[in-house]
Each structure stands twice: as structure tokens, then as C-alpha cells.
Design a protein around this nucleic acid. Structure first.
Lengths: 284, 284
DNA sequence: ATACTTCTGATAAATATTTTCCAGAAATTT
DNA sequence: AAATTTCTGGAAAATATTTATCAGAAGTAT
């Protein structure tokens, strides 16, 4: 790392160079990524001093020095957390289990890093609001995620509908949409026309839209009040929904907390119901 | 933030510009801090395209664009939260987003740590074997996971059926089960009686069972040939399916690789059918 | 299918940056 | 304190980068 190298060389540097070195380390690496002249000015040394020091550090020239700084930055953004070298112990790191898990953790990190907590909280409030009707919409693959969310929310709040945009019955559901109703829409790449149409109608009717999409963003983004863009790339011919599921589950949990008082009874009642029908075994 | 601005403007950008935008976001902000020509090259667009886009984004020129990127970087590094003990930067570590993600990562680590890669590979082989019929079984909540697996495998292999154990039609599906057929069964806590019954019949008919369950293990474990026990505990009134989804997706990817030659054509055909995005240029 | 518009990239011109050179300043040695 | 060495920064030269121009390609509408 360049900052280490600078620290190490600090002894062998001249006064002006040391002054420069401190300036570089001061807000590393941003200061080194601008033009040489700007760095010289902010360190209050001359332009040639910078040029010379960079060569002293072993670089052919300032551009090469910058290139390495950028590489460092790239690497830092890619894996800031000590990379767990293998997840499945006893499998080589090239094993799909490890490769795939690495990718998913990366996706989670990058996705969460870009979420604004305030917006997340807002989305939770919208989804929790039990005075409006809630529609959960998924497409060909994503309807599984939509249903997962639906099944949980069903326990927490009333007035909730799961619409599969691939079904040709969906226009019927939209008849009763009121202004202020909330749509949670899932649309990942190979964005579906049906889903877009549905979103447009919902939007026209004055409904609010919370969108879960990928990093390239479904066109519905333009209509959405809140969008969550999830990283979905994994070493596979398909995309990963793991990050999205994480967000869904977090949202469910957050909503649960918001409205625990109201839902407590519902939950217990349901528990009771499932027991009677003997769908579930008693759990100790 | 520039990345936000880019995503926001994405609509108004032309095809080449969009391609560039994605390249910038791909490893943000490092890629934008190098020379314009390097960025153009890595995004595979021409130099003027880059120049035009930064102006479209409201900057006087590329240097000004870079200057703002550097300012962002400086601010981010200065911010004490850049210490990566939080996932959603800008949210306190007590925020549900961070708490929940911590728990899920923990679950992934613990689950993967207990998996025997050999068994995982075996399970993949069982699920991939296209000479036998494959049944995917889920319960009240887990049928969403089952369907997720089903939808993907459908593309890869023939002879596959998704059974919902809560449906009262499932006994019909079991009529044709042959010895050697494979069942992938999902059964998480509040283990379902129906699912157990189904597993018993399948087992009696000589079918092989791959079971996805939680760390306390469904009673089906006794009948299963291979069991994956997933950690599912999160700070929530419900359990997390994230780890299980990760395993499912990994399995899909592994199976895909096993049978790539056979499925390549199927995939490409589908790709063509679903691709309406026109976002990306065709690969050469 | 044709005309029209918009977009794209090769090239050239303009601008900015980096490097080199050198004279004078600062530090060190004698 | 003088001589010597090392360091520093101004300015010019060399190089690289950015911006503007324009013709042809791609896409759209008629």
C-alpha cells in the first residue's frame, strides 16, 4: 500500500517532501487522485517537489502513482471486510459453495452500503400502514419473493393482496385501487412488460410504489416513490435473489416491531388456528 | 452524490451513455477518477461520449466531474462510520438493517461451516439426474423456496414437479412415483404434518430424499438421504430463509455447470424470448 | 422503403498536466 | 565564515488529456 510505503520512506525524505507526505496522508487517498499541481498547492510545496518525490517512491511518474492509488481504492471498495477465505470448511476455495457465498456476501455489502436508512424506514412505514390497501406484485420469478412477503405481512396487517403480473387476471385486481394505496413491486432484469403496465396503471390511480429492482433498475423506477436497487450478480447463469430476500425479511421484522401491539393478538389467534387444524405440530 | 445523479438521469441517457453509466457505477468511484480516455476504453465507448455525458450530468467538464468525485471520497473517508462495522452506512449499528444483516451473515457462516462439500455435490448430482423424476416439495411458507428452485430447474431439466404439501391434491402426484425418483423437501420449524406424511409415502415407494430443514431438524431427517440443516434465527418474530435460498441458488448454479452442454440451447432460446430490455449492446 | 432525426466515434484543435532544466536558496561541512 | 553539497521552486519544454468538429452510422418516423 502506498500509504505504508510513504510512512516507511518518511525518514529518507527531505523537508519539503515530508511536508508533502503528510499532506498526502492527511486525507488519503483523495488528495493524491487530483492533478499534481493541486496536490503541490495544497501541500504548499512546488510542483517539481511532488514530481521528484513520486519518483523517489519508486514510480515512473505521477500518472503511474495515481493509477496505483486507484487500484488500491478499487480493492478497498471490493473487500473492506476481511475476506473469509473459505465458508464451507473442507472445500477448496474454488468450490462453488465458497465462490457463490463470496459473491452473495459481496452483493449484500454493496447493496446495503447504498441504502439510505431513512428511505428504508419510510418504505417500512408505507408497507405497515394498515389504513390503506397493500398490493404486492411479482413477475415470472420474483412472484416467489412477492409471495414470501405476502405470507408474512398477512399475519401482521389486513387489506393485502398478492398479484402475479404474469397472470392475465391482474387487471381485475386494479379496479378497486384507491389513491394512496401502496404497491410493493418486484422487477428484476429482463424487466417484464406486464409489470410495467401494471405499475403505470397503479401510478395513474395515485397509488404509491415501493420498488425492489436490480442495480440497473427497472423502468418502473421512474414511477416509484422509493426504490431499492439490489446487487444480483453471482457466478451463475442466473441472478441471485438472496440480497432481496434479506431486505424483505428485514422489512418484515421492522414492520413487526412498528406494530407489535396491534399484531400481537392476530399472531396469537393465528397460532391458535393452525394448532386446531393440526397443520403444525406443537413446538416446545 | 454523483452515483445518485447518474441513476436518476439514467432515463434521459442514450444507449452508449447508459453503457458508460453502468461502467462508472460498476466500481464506483475509482473508475471515474482516472483519465477520461481510460474510462472510455473500459466502458467500451468513445472518448467524446464520456465528455458529452459528464456535461449532460451538469458538469462544465470532466475535470470538474472528477473534482466532485474526489470531494465525495474525501467526505466518505473522513466520516467515522466508514469503519465497516455497519452494513448500511449512515445508519446506527442498532438499526434493524445492520442487526438483521449481522444475524444473516452469521447464519450463513455457521450453516456453511457445517456442510460437507461431498454431500452437497452428491445432492447436486441427485437433483441434476434427468433420468429420474424430480419432485420439489414445500409447505405453508417454504413453498415459495420450493417454487424458486422449481422455476430455475425447469429450464435445466425435464421431468420435474412442484408439490405444495398444504394443497389437498398432493396425494395424486404421488401415484406415479417410481423407485429411485428424487424428492427435494423443505421443512422448517413448525414442521408440517402433511409434509411428513408425504415424505413417508415417498420414502416407502423407494424415492430418495434431499431435505432442507433448520438446525433442529424436521422429523423427516430420519427418512432423508441427505439433509442440510440451515441456521434460521434472526432478530425477528419469524425465521430467516436467506441461508436456505443461498444454498438453493448455489445448487442451481452447480447443476447448471454439470449439465451446461445440454442446457445451453434451452437457455439461449429463453434468453432471446425474455430479453426485452435493449439495455445492452449485443456481445461480439 | 425513404427521408429525417439522433447518436456515435475518428480526428484535429485547444487546453491542461507533467517533466525537465537550471539558477538561486538553504543546509551542511570544513 | 567560506566552500561545498543538497534542496527548492520558477519557467520552459514535452507530454497527455480534454474538448470541438464533423461525417457516417444507427435508429425513428413517414
Amino acid at each position: 500500500m502506498i500509504s505504508d510505503k510513504i510512512q516507511q520512506e518518511l525518514e529518507n525524505l527531505t523537508r519539503a517532501e515530508r511536508q508533502l507526505a503528510h499532506s498526502i496522508l492527511d486525507n488519503y487517498p483523495a488528495s493524491g487522485l487530483g492533478p499534481l499541481s493541486a496536490l503541490a498547492k495544497s501541500a504548499k510545496v512546488s510542483v517539481p517537489t511532488v514530481a521528484r518525490m513520486v519518483q523517489k517512491l519508486g514510480f515512473k511518474g505521477y500518472p503511474e502513482f495515481q493509477a496505483e492509488l486507484r487500484e488500491e481504492l478499487k480493492a478497498k471498495v471490493k473487500n473492506p471486510i476481511a475476506k473469509h477465505d473459505t465458508w464451507a470448511e473442507g472445500a477448496p476455495s474454488e468450490h462453488m459453495l465458497n465462490q457463490f457465498t463470496d459473491a452473495v456476501i459481496d452483493n449484500i455489502r454493496l447493496t446495503l452500503g447504498q441504502i439510505e436508512p431513512r428511505l428504508f424506514d419510510e418504505a417500512c412505514a408505507l408497507v405497515a400502514a394498515s389504513n390503506t390497501h397493500l398490493y404486492v406484485v411479482g413477475g415470472r420469478i420474483t412472484h416467489t419473493l412477492a409471495e414470501y412477503l405476502f405470507l408474512h405481512l398477512q399475519t401482521i396487517r389486513p387489506k393485502i393482496t398478492h398479484i402475479q403480473s404474469t397472470s392475465n387476471a391482474w387487471p381485475h385486481y386494479l379496479l378497486d385501487v384507491q389513491k394512496g394505496d401502496v404497491f410493493v413491486i418486484f422487477d428484476m432484469r429482463r424487466y417484464e412488460n406486464n409489470t410495467l403496465k401494471l405499475a403505470e396503471i397503479a401510478h395513474a390511480k395515485g397509488a404509491k410504489i415501493v420498488l425492489f429492482t436490480d442495480q440497473w433498475r427497472s423502468p418502473i423506477d421512474a414511477l416509484a416513490d422509493i426504490t431499492f436497487s439490489n446487487r444480483i450478480e453471482v457466478p451463475s447463469a442466473w441472478d441471485s435473489a438472496a440480497t432481496t430476500l434479506l431486505l424483505i425479511e428485514t422489512m418484515i421484522s421492522a414492520i413487526q416491531n412498528l406494530s407489535w401491539n396491534e399484531t400481537k393478538d392476530r399472531m396469537e389467534e393465528l397460532e391458535e388456528l393452525f394448532d386446531r387444524t393440526k397443520l403444525f405440530r406443537k413446538f416446545n
